[in-house]
C-alpha cells in the first residue's frame, strides 16, 4: 500500500477540501447561530466563548456566517468551473478534432479572450449584466473558457493521431462517438487537474469581486462580501476581515495543493 506521505500534496489537499465540503454539508448543525439574525444590542463583540469569532456591525455571529459561506464558495466553484468546462470542452474538442477553418475560428476567438485581463473582462460583463453573484460567476466562467478550450484542443490534437482512434474509425465509429467515447475520456485527467487548480482562482476572483461590492450583495454570507463590509471597521474590529480572509486563503490553498498533488500523481510529465 502506498504511504500517504509519499504524496504529501495530494493528502494535504484532499484533507483540506474534504473538511471544507464536510463543513458546507453540515453548516446548519455546526453553526451556533442563524447567520442572518441581527441583534443590535451585541454589535462588534470581540471573539469570546459566546461568539467564537465575534459579531459584526449588525450583531450577527461571524463564525456562523463563515460556516454558511462555505456553501456559497463551493457553489461559486461548481458554477464557475462547471460553466467554463461546459463551454470550453466542446470548443476544444471540435477545434482540435476537425482542424481547418473551425480550428482557426476558435483559436482566434480564444486569442481575443486571452487579450482581456480576466478581472477587466469580468468587470465589463458585470457592468452589462449588473452586479450579482450569479452574473459574476457567469463572467468568471467566460474568462476561464480559453484555458479549458486550449488545453482540450491540444490534447485532442495529439490524441486523434493515436492508433486506437484510427482503429475506432476503421470499425465504423462516427465523429461524435470517437470524440465522446474515445477522445474525451483520455483527455479527462489533465482537464481534471486544470479544473482543480482553477477552483482556487475562482474562489479568489469571486470573493474579490464581492469584496468590491460587484459580486454577492449584502446580507449574503459570502466571504468576500463579509470582508468588504468589515474593511470599514479596520482597527476597531479587524477580525471582521481577518477570519473571512483566512478561510478564503485556506480554501484556495487546499485546491492549489490538491491540484499540484493530482498533477504529481496522475501526470508526472507536467510537474513544475
Amino acid at each position: 500500500m502506498t504511504s500517504p506521505w509519499k504524496h504529501k500534496n495530494l493528502t494535504a489537499g484532499t484533507v483540506i477540501i474534504a473538511a471544507i465540503v464536510l463543513v458546507a454539508a453540515s453548516a446548519p448543525l455546526l453553526a451556533p447561530y442563524d447567520p442572518y439574525f441581527q441583534n443590535l444590542s451585541i454589535t462588534f463583540q470581540a471573539p469570546s466563548s459566546l461568539h467564537l469569532l465575534g459579531t459584526d456591525q449588525y450583531g450577527r455571529d461571524v463564525l456562523s456566517r463563515i460556516l454558511y459561506g462555505t456553501r456559497l464558495s463551493l457553489l461559486e466553484i461548481l458554477v464557475g468551473v462547471g460553466l467554463a468546462l461546459l463551454l470550453g470542452l466542446p470548443c476544444g474538442l471540435v477545434s482540435g478534432y476537425f482542424g481547418g477553418t473551425v480550428d482557426r475560428a476558435v483559436s482566434w476567438t480564444l486569442d481575443v479572450l486571452y487579450a482581456f485581463p480576466g478581472i477587466v473582462l469580468t468587470l465589463l460583463i458585470v457592468a452589462i449584466l449588473g452586479p450579482s453573484l450569479i452574473n459574476t460567476l457567469v463572467a468568471i466562467a467566460i474568462f476561464s473558457v480559453p484555458v479549458y478550450a486550449r488545453l482540450t484542443r491540444n490534447l485532442t490534437l495529439s490524441l486523434k493521431q493515436m492508433d486506437f482512434i484510427e482503429a475506432a474509425r476503421a470499425l465504423g465509429a462516427g465523429n461524435a462517438r470517437i470524440l465522446l467515447r474515445h477522445v474525451l475520456p483520455n483527455a479527462l485527467v489533465p482537464i481534471l487537474i486544470q479544473a482543480t487548480l482553477s477552483a482556487g482562482e475562482v474562489v479568489l476572483t469571486a470573493s474579490g469581486l464581492s469584496f468590491l461590492g460587484l459580486g454577492a450583495q449584502p446580507p449574503l454570507a459570502e466571504w468576500g462580501a463579509m470582508m468588504g463590509e468589515g474593511r470599514n471597521f479596520l482597527g476597531v474590529a479587524t477580525y471582521l476581515s481577518l477570519f473571512p480572509g483566512a478561510i478564503i486563503t485556506v480554501t484556495a490553498l487546499g485546491f492549489n495543493v490538491l491540484g499540484d498533488g493530482l498533477r504529481d500523481r496522475l501526470d508526472p510529465k507536467l510537474r513544475g
Binding site: 469584496f211 468576500g224 474593511r231 479596520l234 482597527g235 476581515s241 481577518l242 486563503t249 484556495a252
Partner: peptide, 23 residues
C-alpha cells in the same frame, strides 16, 4: 510560493494596512 499564490491580495493589503498604517 504555493501559500503566496493562495492569499487574496486584497486581504493581505487589508491586514498590512491594519498593522503598518493603523497600529
Amino acid at each position: 510560493a504555493v501559500a503566496a499564490g493562495s492569499i487574496p491580495n486584497y486581504w493581505l493589503a487589508l491586514m498590512a494596512m491594519t498593522f503598518f498604517c493603523v497600529h
